Simulated assay, not measured.
Amino acid sequence: MTVRMGQLMHVYPDQYDEYERRHNNLFPEMRQALKEAGAHNYSIYLDKKTGNLFAYLEVDDIEKYNQISEMEACKKWWAYMEPIMDTNPDQSPVTTDLHEVFHLD
């Protein structure tokens, strides 16, 4: 069963272009880690007025996807992104998981 996920994050206002550039050049090992974790249909949207990011992705298995945080590729990506966005002490992005209230198939 596919699980749809929505998340909020925040990028610093002077880093919008850099954030997009880095994602347009996603590390190949990070792309592979996402695929191995069962992520697909992954999009991130930016509100340029606030720096808020909205991420949408679908995963095959939420428990399997959550294990991505233990992968070296993910840790490397977090360290790379840490200077340009709000992060936790472990360098992971500060993320708010959203609850789906409506879906039109």
Rank of each mutant, 00 (worst) to 15 (best):
Q67L: 13
N25G: 02
P83Q: 07
R22V: 00
Q7L: 15
M5G: 04
T95M: 14
A55S: 07
S92H: 09
Y19R: 07
D47R: 05
D97W: 08
K48Y: 11
E100L: 13
M9C: 15
M9L: 15
D90Q: 04
N41H: 14
L46Q: 09
N25T: 08
F102P: 02
Q15P: 04
E36G: 02
T2R: 13
P28W: 01
N66E: 15
E36V: 07
L34G: 10
Y19C: 04
M85S: 08
A37C: 07
K75Y: 03
H40F: 15
K64L: 13
Q91M: 15
Y12G: 02
N25K: 06
T50L: 00
T95S: 11
L46K: 06
C74N: 07
T50P: 03
L34F: 13
R21W: 07
Y65H: 05
A33M: 07
A73T: 10
K35L: 13
T50G: 02
L53W: 07
W77K: 01
V94Q: 14
M85T: 05
E36F: 03
D105P: 08
P28Y: 05
E58P: 00
E100D: 12
E70R: 08
H10I: 08
A33P: 08
P89H: 02
I62T: 11
Q91W: 09
Y80G: 01
Y80V: 11
V11R: 09
H103N: 11
N41G: 10
L8N: 05
Y65I: 01
N41C: 07
I68P: 03
F102R: 05
D17N: 12
P93A: 12
Q7S: 15
Q67A: 10
E58R: 00
T96S: 11
N88H: 09
E18S: 08
L104A: 14
T50F: 03
N24C: 11
L34I: 04
T2Q: 13
Y12N: 05
D97F: 10
K76S: 05
Q32K: 14
Y19M: 13
P83T: 02
M85D: 09
D90G: 02
P13T: 05
Y65D: 04
N66Y: 04
G38S: 12
E58V: 00
Y56N: 02
E63Y: 03
N24E: 12
H103L: 14
D97N: 14
I68C: 07
Y12V: 00
I62K: 08
D90A: 03
V3R: 10
D90I: 10
R4F: 03
M5W: 05
D60V: 00
K49S: 14
G38R: 06
L46Y: 07
V3K: 10
D60F: 03
N66L: 13
G38C: 10
A55C: 06
T87A: 12
Q32C: 01
Q91G: 01
D97S: 11
T87Q: 02
E70C: 02
E63Q: 12
L98S: 03
F102D: 06
I68G: 01
L26N: 04
R22D: 04
D61F: 00
G6H: 15
E70A: 11
N52S: 04
G6Y: 14
Y19N: 05
N24A: 09
E58K: 00
F54H: 11
A79S: 15
I62H: 03
S43L: 14
V59Y: 02
T2E: 14
V3Q: 10
P28R: 06
K49E: 15
